[in-house]
């Protein structure tokens, strides 16, 4: 036989006691009409508040059915990078590893873009990235070189009050700078490009490669 619940025992004793009082079996030091009724009311109030609090912490449950009317969702290319940028900006431990991963990927994409769009050799492109002379944007240059980003005070304040992390902001600026490479021929031609003379001589001509 299982042990009786102590709460049930207390309730039983309380009920018997109550019946006894009402039947006049025991002498009671207070009036049944006023103080006792008020006490019962207060107890009910307390218990009611306790149950109401339970409601607040109990979520409603229902079977979750995904909208079948919608098509199967497929990702957009680059969503994984955006996710990594969100994680990298946080304070969690994973952030450090992810930051390194994102930086490496951006660096690889930058070197490849410099080689393909601006016709540098890979070695020259790597040097440009290390020196930070591939772009006019100091934040982008510092980001891929692994240096702390030289944010202005105004920008620091803006980042402090906004929800965007400094890492995400710097990464986004770097991606924009990479994308701008070789886009505008007039500026690209006038910009001083160290190492441009040592382009790969074996590379096929532009006309040949532009299939």
């Amino acid at each position: 036989m299982s042990r009786p619940d102590p709460l049930v025992l207390i309730a039983l004793v309380a009920a018997l006691l109550g019946l006894g009082i009402v039947a006049g079996a025991f002498g009671v030091p207070f009036s049944l009409r006023s103080a006792f009724v008020t006490l019962v009311g207060l107890l009910a109030l307390l218990q009611g508040l306790r149950y109401a609090a339970v409601r607040r912490s109990t979520p409603r449950r229902a079977t979750d059915v995904e909208a079948p009317e919608r098509r199967h969702r497929v990702p957009v290319p680059g969503d994984d990078v955006d996710e990594q940028l969100d994680v990298a900006g946080g304070w969690r431990g994973r952030g450090v590893t992810v930051r390194e991963k994102v930086r490496d990927r951006l660096r690889a994409a930058l070197v490849e873009t410099l080689v393909l769009r601006e016709n540098y050799t890979e070695a020259t492109a790597t040097d440009l990235v290390d020196e930070g002379t591939w772009t006019d944007d100091p934040v982008a240059a510092a980001f891929v070189a692994g240096d702390p980003p030289p944010f202005s005070l105004r920008r620091r304040f803006a980042l402090f009050v906004s929800s965007e992390s400094a890492f995400r902001h710097a990464a986004a600026r770097t991606i924009r700078a990479i994308d701008d490479l070789g886009r505008d021929e007039s500026t690209a031609g006038t910009r001083e490009r160290p190492g441009a003379s040592s382009r790969d001589a074996d590379r096929p001509e532009r006309g040949e490669a532009s299939w």
Partner: peptide
């Protein structure tokens, strides 16, 4: 399938363009 609406998507577009350029340089149409 690439778009430019977020930094990550823009990076994916750059990487794809680079892949196409590399293939073309290797003689693949």
């Amino acid at each position: 399938p690439t778009v430019e609406s977020t930094p990550g998507r823009r990076l994916a577009r750059i990487e794809r363009e680079n892949r196409i350029s590399r293939l073309r340089r290797a003689g693949v149409r």
